[in-house]
Design a protein around this nucleic acid. Structure first.
Lengths: 154, 154
DNA sequence: CCTTGAGTTGAAGGGGACTTCAACTTGCAG
DNA sequence: CTGCAAGTTGAAGTCCCCTTCAACTCAAGG
């Protein structure tokens, strides 16, 4: 029985480049045993971890936060389906929230087109307090002061 | 009548930092006239451009692509509401698609939890061909070869 | 044995999206 | 006029997420 996977195997099965897997290991996202010859051998359960990382990234979560989440898994025993479910449920909420915000953005976009202004003071920027963030790095949106007109260009 | 805005005014009205506005200018996302003393003066219509940039980023579109889109606006005349609507409609489709994929991801996540595997071969990775991408930089997902088992860990 | 493909490391590179800094110059209120 | 906030530039720095490279070492088939 195949107890463990080489890095090449894990890479092709997970769809994540070997270099990324090594990087993830440095960040503490995945773990590997070593052979006598110092090569990585991954337990099959690492597939789940990698999958979880990838999913989480899609949700717009940083690797650091993902690591923190993974650290909450029991270290002593192999995580059960229930353990994973707990993590995933939390993520699910974030996904839902993000979906909600994107839907709102889409609808607001329609509204802006209708109004012809696309000024976003009224439409989107004001909603970003709700943080649709975690999308791109460095974008730390600075909200305009509250004493602004609702729709500057209308 | 206030014909033009200083960079500080544009920054506070758009909620985008001055440094970002200058950066956007270098990338050709916004334009500014100059005073005799070489200071930027933005036409009011630039507010729309900035707003469009910000919205587009939320949709997960890179600045380069946004620039390309903006370049399709008529250069000779001031873009009309219809011009903007055309751009926004295209983006709207992308938003919808992204929402659809996120919803699918959420539901798949439930499915994975149910199945207890979270392997994603069957669940998510295979759907990523549809490109939910544009989320994080550098992630260029490599799909696993087609001859893989559906759910490696079940 | 030998070769060849798979793995190893640390350091450096790279892209995207900005921010920060230093050293000036402009613009405007008093 | 003076003084001070606001603006200008280019270069460099930052953060995140990796990839690439060089120089080796390991593992396994012929």
């Amino acid at each position: 029985m195949k107890e463990s996977l080489t890095i090449g195997q894990l890479a092709s099965r997970s769809g994540v480049a070997q270099s990324a897997l090594r990087y993830y290991e440095r960040l503490g996202l995945v773990r590997a045993e070593r052979t006598s010859g110092n090569q990585r051998r991954y337990a099959r359960t690492e597939l789940r971890r990698v999958a979880f990382v990838r999913i989480s990234q899609q949700v717009g979560i940083s690797l650091e936060e993902i690591r923190d989440a993974l650290d909450s898994l029991p270290a002593s025993r192999t995580p059960t389906a229930a353990d994973w479910a707990e993590l995933s449920t939390a993520w699910r909420a974030r996904l839902s929230e993000k979906i909600r915000l994107m839907t709102k953005l889409r609808d607001d976009l329609d509204g802006c087109i209708g109004c012809g202004c696309l000024s976003l003071q009224r439409c989107t920027l004001s909603n970003l307090e709700d943080k649709l963030s975690g999308e791109g790095p460095g974008a730390r949106l600075m909200l305009p002061p509250a004493d602004q007109p609702a729709c500057a260009d209308c």
